[in-house]
């Protein structure tokens, strides 16, 4: 069973929920797809077993064959190419590795090389296997790293996918093969707005889903109201508590405390029934 954990904004508690669900299951695979800020490893402290480089295509030019037609420059929607004084300039950090420039060059002046944009770390944390994607700073897109993270996933057992924040392409890539999506939300108007964005996304992808309200404060019912109006199941409410905040800020798994372990375990059982 693959569960994706997503939210409309950063800092809502995706990683908090993800690592504790993985801990409650005490088995399976945790995948950190938040490749710009992979924080799951702070909590799970995996023993590193293998590191793989993630490489993407980058064009290289043979100026002897280049006619200066600028077809490639005009084609590149990311503006990664410029042609100046009989020389083609290539800006690797703007290149999205689509390969279109190489395909369109009628003179065969462009060829494909490979360059690394990040890594995937494979590790083990107790019985939990971990994968962490790390995108190099300044890169245009983390999607190739996410694709690499999500290849060869075992069909058996629990897989928790800790998504990037928001509802962009990187999130779509992370949830597309999931069996269930957990939407994490904060009980504020801003939180409701962000929840509505990811809610639309999982509806679009037709994924079974439920909401976890994190940092819940008594009397603040805006998220509950939104969920009731849209008939979205609420899986769990986690109170805004000093103890949770302290444990979390020290990189501890709150699930190690019995009272929290049981809530995360209940959520897993609820989801298992639905999928």
């Amino acid at each position: 069973m693959r569960i994706s954990v997503l939210s409309g904004k950063g800092g809502t508690g995706k990683t908090f929920i993800s690592v504790n669900l993985a801990y409650a299951a005490n088995d399976g695979l945790y995948i950190d797809c938040d490749v710009e800020e992979p924080n799951g490893r702070i909590f799970l402290k995996p023993e590193l077993q293998l590191v793989e480089k993630v490489k993407v295509m980058l064009p290289t030019v043979d100026m002897d064959k280049c006619s200066g037609c600028k077809t490639c420059v005009h084609f590149c929607k990311y503006n990664a190419l410029a042609y100046v004084k009989n020389k083609l300039l290539i800006f690797p950090e703007l290149c999205h590795a689509c390969g279109g420039c190489v395909m369109l060059c009628s003179n065969g002046a462009l060829a494909e090389t490979r360059r690394a944009i990040g890594i995937v770390e494979y590790g083990q944390s107790g019985k939990i296997k971990t994968r962490t994607g790390v995108l190099n700073t300044g890169e245009a897109t983390g999607i190739p790293v996410i694709k690499h993270l999500l290849t060869d996933i075992p069909n058996e057992g629990l897989v928790v996918i800790d998504c990037p924040p928001g509802s962009s392409c990187a999130v779509m890539e992370s949830i597309k093969d999931s069996d269930y999506c957990i939407l994490v939300a904060e009980p504020t108007l801003f939180g409701v707005h962000n929840l509505s964005m990811v809610y639309k996304l999982v509806k679009l992808f037709d994924k079974p889903h439920g909401v976890i309200i994190n940092k819940a404060i008594e009397g603040e019912t805006v998220v509950e109201d939104y969920c009731r109006e849209n008939e979205i199941p609420i899986l769990m409410t986690i109170p805004y508590e000093l103890e949770i905040g302290l444990l979390n800020s020290q990189g501890m798994l709150v699930g190690q405390k019995d009272k929290y372990f049981s809530i995360f375990n209940k959520v897993l059982q609820k989801i298992k029934k639905e999928v």
Binding site: Y78, N79, A80, L81, F91, L94, A140
Partner: peptide, 8 residues
């Protein structure tokens, strides 16, 4: 442009 405006 989404990105690379300066280059373009």
């Amino acid at each position: 442009a989404q990105g690379g405006a300066g280059i373009k």
